[in-house]
Design a protein around this nucleic acid. Structure first.
Length: 488
RNA sequence: CGGGGCGUAGCGCAGUCCGGUUAGCGCACCUGGUUUGGGACCAGGGGGUCGCAGGUUCGAAUCCUGCCGCCCCGACCA
């Protein structure tokens, strides 16, 4: 049978596209740069949403929804912000179509031009802060802790499913606080939530850190980021949390009266993760056989394959196992397709990343056991039927842990400290990954390194140790190492 | 926006250079049968505006002109 998935070694980006397609996560759509998220891909996103939403609510946030369209004038109110997004905005200019007089279909009605164009939101700070002005009068209205689940549009030149699409799904938290300190703590708290989610649910280890001025969100005073390392040695920015200072409060005139009835501008944060996480999930764990999913986010955790085909006594055993697994809260699917043979099914479920496969045949049943195969290591085991529910539950936990441990090991092996530009270049060219090096703190140097090597500063790590050194390009003094990598 | 490639059945492709029966192959799909512990086999069957629009010609998937779309690689970005 022909290889269905290009190997990582042969062509990493084709491998990624093959997985997205063969695991039925997403399709290209008729609209350039936009994907169709298929049921399996969407189920993964729904599982992510469910956990994140719970974590947001546990930290005191509530959901709301703001408009898709933003008046053009709003976007111009914060100078850095507009500069950051202006180049990639979709703009609505008309509100009506008409039949083409020549009968060739519909055309835009030239008489239906909008007085003020609307921007399809690339992010919602402006429309939200324009609203917050009306919602906030007193310190009693603070903190305001709101999140929204939404779609946004950024007109990208080049797109890849999940990693970068013109339209994507995300959540954006927007909070307002009475003090600078409280806002900073909020941004840091959500940064922590993202890191915990990535490691505990996605089994994707991340480095927590701050962005340099150059890489910061347009309009932020500080951007915190979680950075993950993909299997091709490139870094993926997986989530960001911003301390926005009073920039948006001033731009939209959002003030509150403090306890002494003195008017003050409020302090802001915003934070988001997107469907890009699905891309990160794929590239963290998957292999040349296909998708590998961590049990905690897998839409189906266990698949049962009757061998050689669904027969009454086998199906009876399958139903008993299903009941036991469901009692343990495990999601399970029984493949009752009579036409496909077991071998085909095995390959297919491996491609789709289902964490555990249970094969039930007469030979097994005669011995009161089943064949259990784990997707992460491809190991096959024989489990007795007695404690199948708890055994599988334990196995799923072990798989979850193993995926995180394997990813951590990969990251450790692909994080290198270097002290000279030559070493920097050679590590980048050979094994890639994170490179820990001294930097003189200037945007100039950062940009020069990017120009020479394509590597960027992914973050100034939270756990950065103070260490005297010299910048690897300029030789100027540095007080600590930052993390470089080529990024997605 | 630069550089490369491609539009022929749901998917993947051949045919295009050098115009000529009824446009073909693999996978998938439908029917029947034999199979069945790692991607089964046989037989039969359905499915096409050959990207679009002009042009040349007795005749165009094939030649000419124009247009449209998509993918990959780069610069920009979650």
């Amino acid at each position: 049978m022909a290889k269905e998935i290009t190997s990582r070694e042969e062509n990493y980006s084709q491998w990624y596209l093959d997985i997205v397609k063969k695991a039925e996560l997403a399709d290209n759509s008729a609209v350039r740069g936009c994907m169709v998220i298929k049921p399996t891909g969407f189920a993964i996103w729904e599982n992510m949403k469910e956990q994140l939403d719970r974590m947001f609510k546990e930290t005191g946030h509530v959901n709301a929804y703001f408009p898709l369209f933003i008046p053009k004038s709003f976007l111009s109110k914060e100078a850095d912000h507009v500069e950051g997004f202006a180049k990639e905005c979709a703009v609505v200019t008309h509100h009506r179509l008409m039949n083409n007089p020549d009968g060739s279909g519909v055309v835009v009605d030239p008489d239906a031009r909008l007085e003020e164009e609307l921007i399809v939101r690339p992010t919602s700070e402006t429309i939200i802060w324009n609203t917050y002005r009306d919602w906030i009068q007193s310190y009693r209205d603070l903190p305001l802790l709101i999140n929204q689940w939404a779609n946004v549009v950024r007109w990208e030149m080049r797109t890849r499913p999940f990693l970068r699409t013109a339209e994507f799904l995300w959540q954006e938290g927007h909070t307002a606080h009475a003090t600078r300190q409280e806002a900073i703590e909020e941004a840091q708290q959500m940064h922590e939530v993202y890191a915990r989610f990535a490691e505990d649910y996605m089994a994707m280890p991340v480095i927590k850190g701050a962005k340099t001025a150059n890489e910061r969100f347009a309009g932020a005073e500080e951007t915190y980021t979680i950075e993950a390392l993909m299997q091709d040695g490139r870094a993926l920015q997986a989530g960001t949390s911003h301390f926005l200072g009073q920039n948006f409060a001033k731009a939209f005139d959002v003030k509150y009266a403090d306890q002494n009835n003195k008017e003050e501008y409020v302090w802001a944060t915003s934070w988001g993760v997107s469907t890009r996480l699905v891309g990160g999930l794929i590239m963290t764990h998957s292999d040349d056989e296909g998708l590998v999913l961590p049990p905690k986010l897998a839409p189906i955790q266990v698949v049962i394959v009757p061998i050689p085909k669904p027969q009454p006594e086998i199906m009876e055993a399958a139903e008993r196992i299903v009941a036991e697994l469901k009692a343990q809260g495990i999601s399970v699917f029984v493949d009752t397709d009579k036409k496909k043979r077991p071998g085909f099914k095995f390959a297919e479920y491996e491609m789709k990343g289902i964490p555990v496969r249970i094969g039930i045949g007469k030979r097994d049943l005669a011995e009161n056991k089943v064949e259990v195969a784990r997707r992460d290591t491809k190991e096959k085991m024989s489990y007795g039927l007695d404690q199948i529910g708890t055994q599988i539950k334990n196995l799923l936990e072990e798989i979850q842990n193993n995926l995180l441990a394997t990813a951590k090991k990969y990251r450790a092996e692909h994080t290198t400290s270097v002290d000279s530009f030559e070493d920097f270049q050679s590590v980048l060219d050979t094994k890639g990954g994170f490179i820990s090096a001294h930097w003189d703190g200037t945007t100039d140097t950062e940009l020069k390194i990017k120009e020479l090597t394509k590597a960027t500063i992914r973050c100034i790590p939270n756990d950065q140790e103070s260490e005297d050194g010299v910048d690897l390009l300029t030789g100027k003094p540095s007080k600590g190492r930052v993390l470089f990598a080529k990024a997605y």
